[in-house]
Amino acid sequence: MLTFGIEEECFLVERTTLQPAPIADLVRRGLPAMTAGGLVTSEFLASQIERFTPILTEMDSATTDLSRFRAEMGAAPRLRGVIAIGVGTPFDASALPIVTEKERYRNVENGIRGVLRDHQICATHIHMGVPSRDAGVRALNRLRIWLPTLMALSGNSPFWRGSSTGFDSWRAVIMRRWTTTGCPSHFNDAADYDRRIRRLVGVGATTDVATVAWYGRLSEVHPTLEVRVADAQLDVESRTLLAALTRGLVATALDEAGRDIPPLTVEPELLDAALWHAARDGIRGNLLNPATTELTPAREAITTMVRSIEGSLDDAGDQQRVAESLEHLWRKGTGAQQQERAFATKGRSGLSAFLETSFTS
């Protein structure tokens, strides 16, 4: 069974205004460095905290771990009138965010220049253990076509600077301003991958390989494949659903590559357009179905993906969990849809209460 880890980022925001609060270092010092068994660190902005789970094998363990951390994290800033929230973009944002005092982050700031004003985003990254870098490339070549589908399931950033954007994932739109983003290319092997990713360093704002922001890439530190397409998520169930689906995609990709089953192919320009489409509409309308390379109803495209990995889901014991979580998703909507309902019902105060409650649910 493939191991996995979840890297989650969250915002600290003022409870009343929902604007980012640059007190992450203060809040982080109040938490154990290895809180709930995972590593808590600073992030690019002084209003963000990042946390890495331990290496995991079971989704039940992931649920327990994430719930414990979120309970600790949710309580930490409250006395300061600040709440922790899991969203891809904050409801409102300052004109110019405060960058965390680290040399690497200052180098990034110098590289992106005016992009900094809008680069106020949080994501969920799923790290999957792979046997080797070559195996990781083989898996990446196959799962890349499903990245728009995962984006549609995980959109959770419908607001920007106090207004509705009409997108489920405005974070994805902001990410298009980065030097590199979107679906990675097809690579021949690990040597090809390593050669090409290192050629990007120094181009634009790519200060190092860690700033190559493809939605799928290999880790330069750990033997993992990182899937980075999802917004930060409202609640724990949304994160474990993404982890289970990602593990199913990676396990299936490795199995099919080992048996020389030809992969589905989607032209790069179509994949790129499908990402934009998924960021806008989420699961509300049509999605690109890689099996047909046509737009189909979102539920049909997602069902196609799940059916393609059902053997791996069953092997990992994740099939029922995924089915139940998807039913919850169809009933409740994406995080973006839930945020929009909370704001439409009770305005900014209602959205604040909803986001605070969701973070620890």
Rank of each mutant, 00 (worst) to 15 (best):
F354I: 00
L12T: 11
N141G: 11
P158C: 03
S238Q: 10
T296M: 02
T334L: 03
G317R: 10
C122V: 00
H127R: 01
S47V: 02
L31M: 14
Q338N: 12
D189E: 07
G258Y: 00
M34L: 14
V82H: 07
H127W: 05
R239M: 13
W170H: 15
E50C: 03
E324A: 14
L225C: 01
I121V: 15
D65E: 13
C122S: 15
A36D: 15
S219Y: 00
T64S: 14
E237Q: 02
D314Y: 12
A191V: 02
P77A: 01
L31S: 08
S42V: 09
L12H: 10
S42Q: 13
E9F: 04
E300Y: 01
T53N: 09
L355W: 02
D192N: 12
E256H: 14
R78I: 03
E256Y: 03
A230W: 01
R15A: 13
Q120P: 09
A323C: 03
V236E: 12
G350I: 01
V115E: 12
A353H: 11
K346V: 00
N188K: 13
L241D: 06
C183H: 08
L147Q: 06
D65R: 00
I55P: 13
T165C: 11
C183M: 04
D189T: 12
L351I: 02
N141T: 01
W178E: 14
L329W: 13
S154E: 08
S132Y: 01
W160N: 10
I126S: 07
G5M: 09
V137G: 06
V322E: 08
T35D: 12
V306W: 03
L249K: 05
L79F: 04
V306M: 04
V221E: 11
G155E: 08
L31I: 05
M1P: 15
A205I: 01
H125D: 10
R15S: 14
C10S: 13
